[in-house]
Amino acid sequence: MDGTGGMTRGAGLPWAGGEYELLRNQVRRFVEKEIKPHADSWEEDGFIPRSVLRRMGELGFLGIQYPTEYGGAGMDAVASTVFAEELGRSTYGGVAIATLVHTDMASVHVFNEGTKAQRARWMPGIISGEVITAVAITEADAGSDVKAIRTRARRDGQDYVLNGEKLYITNGVYADLYCVAAKTDPAAGSHGISMFLVEKGTPGLKIARALDKHGWRCSDTAELVFEDCRIPAENMLGVEGQGFYSIMGNFQNERLVLAAMAIGAAQAAIDMTLAWVRTRRAFGGVLWDMQAIRERLAMLATKVEAGRQFLYATAWRMAAGEDCIREVSMVKAFCGELANEVMYTCVQFHGAMGFMRESPIERMARDARVLSIGGGATEVMLDVVASIS
């Protein structure tokens, strides 16, 4: 429970040490110097300055898995997991999710499904932080059930015309480029969904409202409305009718980094609580002297370490090109639930201070709640596991 994140002790493992540890140390320094001193004000403002994302771009953080030809680092899923864990460990879930949506949930559609021309146009700016992305799939009646989306895209000559609404879109207010899911053939079920690129400022695209959230306060989240939003046919991503399969494929990367973010946040909460109970005086001693508290924290630390090793083993397999849908679903469910278990106990051990807004653990507990919901609710993940087992 020393806060090292377990990676030094696991230095003999293939996903520890080397370039991964160099990346971890670089991200950790960035977090300490350029996120933690300022993020409280970002929480109040409800957004993260664009200069912060551009700085991440300068350091190579926004293109970890993308090829060097576009300015990326050419690394793998393990490196993205390291990045996500360290952002989670920052204790600011809003910063982490705004960044990870851009790097691992939205821009992946441009790279994976984009034409050579689309990649050439957008990927350099995405990797530098000049172009911020969002993915617009979720609707009021369609979250994990992607097939239920109602947004339509109708072909009209050399254009498509989009009509519909999207909800809970992270980076929805400040994004420059949206990857939008819409039905091009409403009668074809999952075979009738396509993906499109829509630029901010396109006539017919409206940001209906910024949403007021329980946690992740410094990440902007929006409701989007498309009213006869006309875009060139060349803005389609991939093949018409194949968008559902693109979304499902990209979910694996999304769920992996969300699990990593959860592990990072859980580790930070344990470290913070250890420091608190070792100094908080009660009943003639400190809280750490109480066996029940020591043992509960030790068990939580054990679960976090188990989750971390499962997480990195899965990332290693993904990097090797293996099909890991079952394992990714497991690790997303386990880590999302574990983060909430950790936060609940850590708030408890902080006592009344854990309920105060001035305490970081209070914010972290709010931020963690959505980790068992977003990117695939725990119940959905477990149903995936059950269907494959």
Results as ranks from 00 to 15, higher is better:
E234H: 02
W216G: 02
Q252I: 08
S246Q: 00
T221R: 08
G241H: 06
I207M: 11
G241S: 07
E199K: 07
G215A: 09
N253H: 08
Q252S: 11
R209Y: 06
Q291K: 15
R255C: 06
A265C: 03
L211E: 15
G249P: 03
C229K: 02
L256R: 09
Q267K: 10
D271K: 10
G204M: 06
A292M: 03
V277H: 04
I231N: 01
A268D: 00
G215C: 11
A292S: 06
E295P: 05
A208N: 12
L224D: 14
W216I: 04
F226K: 04
R278K: 15
S194W: 02
K206I: 04
L211P: 11
C229F: 04
Q267E: 15
W216T: 08
E223G: 05
Y245P: 01
F196E: 02
F226C: 09
A259T: 02
R281I: 10
N235P: 10
M195G: 09
R217L: 08
M272I: 03
I263L: 10
I247Y: 05
K200H: 13
E254N: 08
N253L: 12
G201D: 13
C229W: 05
I231E: 03
A266Y: 13
A259F: 07
G249L: 03
I270D: 02
L274V: 09
F196Q: 01
N235H: 14
A260E: 11
V239D: 15
S246L: 00
W276A: 01
D271M: 06
L205K: 05
N250M: 14
D228W: 02
L256I: 07
T202N: 11
E234T: 08
V225E: 15
Q291D: 12
Q267H: 09
F226P: 08
R294K: 10
A265S: 09
L258K: 02
G249W: 00
E227D: 15
R209E: 15
A260Q: 14
E223N: 06
